[in-house]
Design a protein around this nucleic acid. Structure first.
Lengths: 218, 218, 218, 218
DNA sequence: TATGAATGAGCCTTCATTCAT
DNA sequence: CATGAATGAAGGCTCATTCAT
């Protein structure tokens, strides 16, 4: 038990470097990529630092040159996941849809497709969210941001009399998104079996109904 | 180590007793109750067998007289959680509501209240679901069962022309439930801040809208 | 990096057992004895827990059943060293001396002899004192206690007009003891070479002179 | 790992440069100064090479351009400490004292003052002495040298009949110095509390008494 | 000479699980 | 059935040291 005034944790080797050299950048990237692979394979809890290091082709200690913990390397992975998750909304299919209902369907479809592609990693994200407050907060912020943007649309539609005026745009956006997220989680992460087209059709219709959108509103 | 690859050597000896003596029953119950306390306090990952044993006031080894692992004691906790979760649906407020919309609101209210009361444990449930296939399956089954029951209602309403005919009753029930579950999770487990009444009002209206229920249908 | 409110250190497995069973007592004793051997051999810094465990003939983890750290096992060793150190003062040779000067010489002789016997361990003690505040405090307290007792003698002698009235009994006791301790350290721990009898003769004479004790005062 | 058993593989490459360029000299000096700061802050064991390097504003590897180990940089610090420690003896107050007793008191005062100023570093010195044979030897040599010089005085005084003829000048010098050193260590490094003036007065009187110096001998 | 990332041996520590009493 | 000490595999993490640039 350390008796010194300054507890070790304070002096901790917490200072991880921000690579300056070319090699450093490459190594860091290799570790992040390896983490993606190992985390997808083993999940957060069962992923071992040494496996990530080996997968990255670096020494055990090199992991700690760039990250202080497993949680931290996940944080580094987050922005990539973020891009993945946000792209759908802005994808060409969504924008090109002729009416709002079609856009909603395209968005749901894009979300589910993306979830399916990244199911392993998104399950890990779920796991880390539970374990790491910082990640939970990041994720909450992302959700809110996403909801805020969706809320802008909803508010616009409300202004045009297309959507139930009594709904709170932000809570509605969060709720309907949650519905999609959760169903994607059940189907792709937990293993529920629902036919893809049934799922898309129902979720889309539930969105449209829930908003009270006229069928062909554009 | 991924759940599905546990080498035999590590796997617990398996044969756990089903207590016959009075003392045995009491001991087992003490352990289950202690597990509830410790899991709520520390979460699944951080809960230690020895802490549970101490909390139960029994020796370390006694845990293994009744359970082969942490996951197993959680399984023993499951029925209690199940009751908690299912009670709401059948609560007097739900049954006594004058119309369907009120019943839905009462149900959502009951669910949220219950979630709030058991937030810690439900967060653990989330955690274990991620970690333990058996629990994930149990939970999936519970969700389906719940959805099946809700689907019966929906189907009935569809038969009476009260609800959108195009919705698949089962997928719809699962989706709308997921929406509530997820929002409860965000608000009570992750820490999002949404005013309770706003949440209830919106979720209720989204349910009703999504089903296309006429306002005063009973 | 743990994100939980309660830092791990607080929930730490700090609770080490106080052995209840016969076997437990024996094991603990074996570890303490092994620690004595290994510490004497390697010093505090270089002593490894695993070496102590092996020397004790127990598993690595068993060390932690009884002690939370190397420092803690040293603390367990302390009382034994204490006895060693205090015995001299009360030894038969000291008590049986015909006059005060002889008693002082006997005491110094006893102290040096004891130091020589335990040189390795006392060097370790020196090391731990520097590294562990708790041990430093324990040692300081021991020194003071020792000085307090010596001060009683000095005060008595002052009362009888045998000793320089201007000396502060406590500071004097501490200073003269320090002189002996330090010389013992130099000769037996650091490796200085001074003939034993020269050392005893000089230290004794310095004590007597310093106190201004008449040669044959009894 | 005990100092004397360092396996060749672990031993540093050895050949360190003796800087010829201006820059080299400055870099080396920066490292030494940084070592002084970090060692004073963290102690020998807890001081890390990388911290010293950072403090010096040089790269990690640059440390090894000039020093093969932590112990070696301490050796480089030694001469500075030496100066600090020896200066007192030669300080103006000591030389200017009217009689021997006053000189002794001035010397003790100077020593304590200096110890207080450098307490942190002197504690480190204590630590390194325990850990590094070479430093222990250096220090022993310094002590002897100091004692030798003091012994010259004592011998002189004996020749003039001012001092107890039975004392061995060298052992006496070492012993009385040890007394002062140890008390300084206790008060300034370990944290004992003795009023400064009491300490000075007692130590001075003990010196004078121990030598049997007539009060006003000059 | 300076740089700073890479290395990896090595020690610490935990805790699920067993088993003799 | 209860006890509680013993076990030891497993992984985390550090940091002195090297070496290519």
């Amino acid at each position: 038990m350390p008796t010194e005034e300054v507890p070790p944790a304070v002096r901790a080797t917490g200072t991880r470097i921000d690579p300056r050299s070319q090699g450093g950048i490459r190594t860091r990237a290799a570790i992040v990529e390896a983490a993606r692979v190992i985390l997808a394979r083993d999940g957060f809890r069962d992923a071992r630092i040494c496996d990530i290091a080996r997968e990255a082709g670096v020494a055990n200690g090199s992991f700690y040159t760039y990250f202080a913990s497993k949680a931290e390397v996940v944080s580094a992975l987050l922005p990539e996941i973020e891009e993945d998750l946000l792209d759908p909304t802005a994808g060409p299919e969504v924008k090109g849809a002729p009416d709002i209902a079609s856009r909603i369907e395209a968005m749901i479809r894009a979300y589910l497709d993306n979830y399916q592609r990244n199911a392993r990693l998104l399950k890990v994200l779920e796991e880390v969210t539970l374990a790491e407050k910082t990640v939970a907060e990041w994720r909450l912020e992302r959700s809110r941001e996403f909801a805020r943007r969706a809320a802008v649309d909803i508010t616009g539609w409300q202004g045009r009399g297309l959507v139930d005026q009594e709904l709170d745009p932000v809570v509605t956006a969060r709720s309907l998104s949650s519905m999609v997220v959760r169903m994607a989680y059940f189907v792709y992460a937990v293993g529920d079996t629902i036919a893809y087209e049934d799922l898309v059709a129902n979720l889309s219709r539930l969105w449209v109904n829930a908003l009270r959108l006229p069928v062909n509103a554009a």
